[in-house]
Design a binder for these strands. Structure first.
Lengths: 144, 144
DNA sequence: CTCCGTGCAAACGATTTGCACTATG
DNA sequence: CATAGTGCAAATCGTTTGCACGGAG
């Protein structure tokens, strides 16, 4: 456990979020200005292999790192791309095929909800109030 | 609907699989040898926007394209990376939060099972028979 | 002294984009 | 002829790797 590795882990834990490698890099850089992004990636990989953190493959191009290694599901804001943990009792999710599905031997599953988080919803409501006079143009804004 | 677009769509539909852009490119190239990968990407994007095909964000680095645009779940072979449709009655999957989850407005979810497909399982069984004399070395082979 | 880990830059794989050209309406 | 779509190459983005150096045992 090197100094850099320690700081990277601390910052990830302190964030209490699911950070991307470069988000974490920006945070770590405030404490270790000479650290490189490669070191962040290398240590995240090492910490993942050691089971100390978890690498999450989720919506969006970048992978996210999670200091909570417990198996849980996630919810993803399609607007701001934040990712939160979901306290979902997996036993409640009935009907999941436990054995073979069309020849497959199941080893796990990944369940990810998407939606609009509270902050984005409030932001949207605020925006729509501010702009309700030119609502006619709204469709033009909705490009992309 | 240009000629290239037509062929791309035909090949995707004919494959009855979830192809990556470059897998599809290789297939299309047999019929249009001068087509470029960029054209394949551009047309896949256009077809996706038009709702004619679906772009699936799944395990693995590459996105996969699906001529079946219906909402359904998937199962992914962690060994050969094939992706199959899952006929899973979503109503049977009980306990999914329909309304608000910690402030979120849910718009959808993505459920992906992982496992070993039949072909890989048979391949594995065959391999383990062929190699059972040197099973002692098996752990050395299991490096990723 | 020996290594492992680092910083840097360059390589990489998947995807996107700028540009000049071409086919088609 | 106007313009949407193409092929090509270069750019981009996230991530990984080669290499020489540096610090801890």
């Amino acid at each position: 456990m090197t100094h850099q590795r320690e700081i990277i882990l601390q910052e990830l834990q302190a964030s209490r979020q699911h950070l991307t490698a470069d988000e974490l890099y920006e945070r770590v850089r405030k404490r270790l200005p000479r650290i490189s992004l490669a070191t962040v990636y290398r240590n995240l990989e090492i910490l993942t292999q050691a089971g100390i953190i978890a690498k999450r493959e989720v919506s969006g191009r970048q992978k996210r790192f999670d200091s909570d290694v417990s198996e849980h599901d996630h919810i993803f804001c399609i607007q701001c791309h934040r990712l939160d943990n979901l306290e979902l009792n997996r036993d409640e999710v009935g009907g999941l095929p436990a054995g073979l599905v069309e020849g497959y031997t199941i080893t796990g599953y990944r369940l990810e909800f998407s939606g609009i988080c509270r902050e984005c919803r409030l932001k949207n409501e605020k925006m729509s109030k501010e702009t309700e006079t030119w609502d006619a143009d709204a469709h033009a804004v909705r490009r992309h």
